[in-house]
Amino acid sequence: MIGLGGAASAGDVPQIRYLDRPSGVMVQTEAATQDTAFAIASVGKTMTAVASLRRVDRGRLGLEDKAAAWIAPDIVQGFGGLNGITLRHLLTMTSGIPDYYTEDYLEDALDDPDRIQRADIALSYAFGEPQLFEPGTDFDYSNTNYVLLGLILEAETGKSYAGAMQQEVFAPAGMTNSFVFGSRPLPIGFADVPDEVRRYYQGAGFGDGGVIATAADVAQFYRTLFIDQTLLPSDLLAALTTDPLGVGYGMGIELDAATIGHSGGDLGFTSDVRLHRPTGTLAIELVADEDAETGWTEDQMPN
C-alpha cells in the first residue's frame, strides 16, 4: 500500500482518496488516516439493497411483496396506503413516494435530534404529499424508499436496522470498522467535524444513508460484492445491477456502462465510489465537507 499524502496542515478538511487498481492500492489523506471513519451517506444505499436481497435469497422477503404488508399501519396510512408499491419499486426508486429529506427535516433534526431522528418521525415529513407517479412507471430518487426498506428489514429479521446490517452486510463482507450511527458511540477515529454535526451522527441512522465506515471497509464491501461475488447469488447480483427504466439506476447502485457505484451527501459529509467492473479498478473518495466536489473518482476510471 502506497501512501500518497503528506502531513496535514492546520485547517485541512478530513478527506481520503482510495484507489485500488491492478498495479496496487494507493491512499491519499488530508487531516485523516486510513482508520478515519466517515459518514458515507447514500453510498450505504447499496448496502441496504444487498441486505434486502440476501433476505430475498433466503426466501424471507420477495421482490414482489407489497411494502404495506411489512410497514406499520400508521406509516402506511401516512403515505395513502402505499397502494401497489412492492419491494422492487422501493429498491429501484420507482415507487413514486415523495422524499422526506427536506430542509425542514434537517433543521428540526439539528434542533431536537432525540425527537426527530426516528425513522417514523422522519418519514412523517413526507406524509400527505401526493404520489409522484404510478409505481413502476417512472423514476424519482427519493430517500424515503430506503428508509422504508430499513423498516422492512427490521420487521422481517426482528432486529434493529443496525443489527440487520451487521448480520447481512458488515460481518459477511468482513467490514470490521462499519456500523449504523446511533447504534454505538462514535469512534475515536471519526472525522473531525463541528459539534452540531457530531451530535447529528450520535442520533439514529436510517436505511437511506445511516452507515459510518472507513474507506478500507467500503473497498472491502465492493470487492466482496462485485469481484469475489460472495454476498449475492448471480441472479440477485444481476437484479441489483439491472436498470429497469434506462435511467442509470439499479437497486441502490448507479450504472454507467462498465462503471458502477454511488454518490452520497449528508450533513457535513460527501462521498463517492466508482468501480470499473472489467478491470476491477475501484476509486473511493470520502470528505468531511457536504459541499465537496468528488469528480476525482470518475477521473480514475479507465477509458
Rank of each mutant, 00 (worst) to 15 (best):
R277V: 15
R184P: 02
G264E: 00
F181W: 05
G182E: 06
P185E: 12
P187F: 01
L225D: 00
D217I: 03
F221H: 04
A173P: 08
A191R: 11
S234D: 15
E196R: 14
T214N: 04
L237R: 02
F179D: 12
M251S: 03
D272A: 05
P244C: 09
A164G: 07
A219I: 07
V218E: 03
T214K: 06
Y222H: 14
S183Y: 12
Y201W: 04
G182D: 14
E168D: 05
D195K: 15
F181E: 00
A204M: 13
N177A: 15
H276I: 06
G207T: 13
G252K: 00
G205H: 07
D228Q: 14
P233V: 05
S271A: 12
L275P: 01
M165G: 03
G246E: 11
I188S: 14
G182V: 01
T259H: 07
A155F: 01
L151I: 09
T242P: 09
E154I: 08
A204Y: 10
A238N: 14
L149R: 08
L186E: 11
P172S: 04
F179K: 10
G203S: 15
T157M: 07
G182P: 06
G210C: 11
L151A: 11
A171I: 09
A257Q: 11
T214P: 10
G246L: 13
Y200R: 10
A216T: 11
E196I: 10
V180L: 13
L275F: 02
V193M: 02
A239F: 14
P278E: 09
Q202D: 12
G189V: 07
V211Q: 00
A204S: 14
S271E: 01
E156V: 15
T230F: 08
L151G: 01
V197W: 02
D208M: 10
G207C: 08
L237Q: 03
D266Q: 15
G174Y: 01
E154P: 09
F226T: 04
F226L: 14
F226W: 00
P194G: 13
V211L: 04
G207Y: 08
Q202I: 00
A204D: 05
S263R: 13
F170I: 12
Y161A: 12
D208V: 14
F221K: 10
F269Q: 02
V197C: 02
N177D: 15
L236Y: 05
T157H: 12
G250I: 05
D235S: 14
G150C: 05
L232H: 03
S178A: 12
D195E: 15
T279G: 07
